[in-house]
Amino acid sequence: LLPYAAPGGVEVGTAVAQEELAQLSRAGHPLRDDKLDEYADAWALLLERGVSLEAGWQAWRLGMTPSRHAREVMGVAVEPKEQV
């Protein structure tokens, strides 16, 4: 969310996001979801091309949101749906 919510504006947020993304890409972890590497490359390219607030949060459109498998790896609890 850095490019969108940074106190210094989109330009500052983009620079900070690019640096944090580069650090994340360099630091490996044995339990990391393989898709994260692909997403990091795609997001880095998107940041390089420029972020527009009017375009909204691009991760949704690009399918870069956590899947059920990712939630299981992260251990995120999901509330069961009500039976109708």
Score class of each variant (00 low, 15 high):
1 L>C: 05
1 L>P: 06
1 L>H: 03
1 L>F: 03
4 Y>M: 09
4 Y>R: 12
4 Y>T: 08
4 Y>Q: 06
5 A>Y: 12
5 A>C: 14
7 P>Y: 00
7 P>E: 03
8 G>W: 01
10 V>Q: 03
11 E>Y: 03
12 V>H: 15
13 G>Q: 08
14 T>Q: 03
14 T>V: 06
15 A>S: 10
16 V>G: 01
16 V>A: 03
16 V>Y: 00
16 V>T: 05
17 A>K: 03
18 Q>M: 14
18 Q>L: 14
18 Q>R: 13
19 E>A: 11
20 E>Y: 12
20 E>D: 14
21 L>E: 05
24 L>F: 05
26 R>D: 11
28 G>T: 11
28 G>K: 06
29 H>T: 02
29 H>I: 02
30 P>D: 04
30 P>H: 01
31 L>V: 12
32 R>D: 07
32 R>L: 05
32 R>A: 06
32 R>H: 02
34 D>E: 14
35 K>P: 02
35 K>L: 09
36 L>C: 07
36 L>E: 12
40 A>W: 05
41 D>V: 06
41 D>L: 07
41 D>Q: 10
41 D>R: 09
41 D>S: 07
43 W>P: 05
43 W>E: 10
44 A>P: 09
46 L>Q: 15
48 E>C: 01
48 E>Q: 11
49 R>F: 07
49 R>K: 15
49 R>N: 15
49 R>E: 15
50 G>R: 11
52 S>I: 03
54 E>C: 12
55 A>H: 04
55 A>Q: 11
55 A>N: 06
55 A>Y: 01
55 A>L: 04
57 W>N: 08
57 W>E: 06
57 W>C: 05
57 W>V: 07
57 W>H: 08
60 W>P: 04
64 M>H: 07
64 M>A: 08
65 T>S: 09
65 T>A: 09
65 T>M: 14
66 P>S: 06
66 P>A: 05
66 P>R: 02
66 P>Y: 05
67 S>V: 11
68 R>A: 15
68 R>K: 14
69 H>V: 15
70 A>W: 04
71 R>D: 13
72 E>W: 08
72 E>S: 12
72 E>R: 13
73 V>Q: 12
74 M>A: 08
75 G>R: 00
75 G>N: 00
75 G>I: 03
76 V>I: 08
76 V>C: 05
77 A>D: 14
77 A>Y: 12
77 A>T: 14
78 V>H: 01
79 E>S: 02
79 E>I: 00
79 E>L: 02
80 P>L: 02
80 P>F: 00
80 P>T: 03
81 K>W: 06
82 E>D: 13
83 Q>K: 12
84 V>T: 08
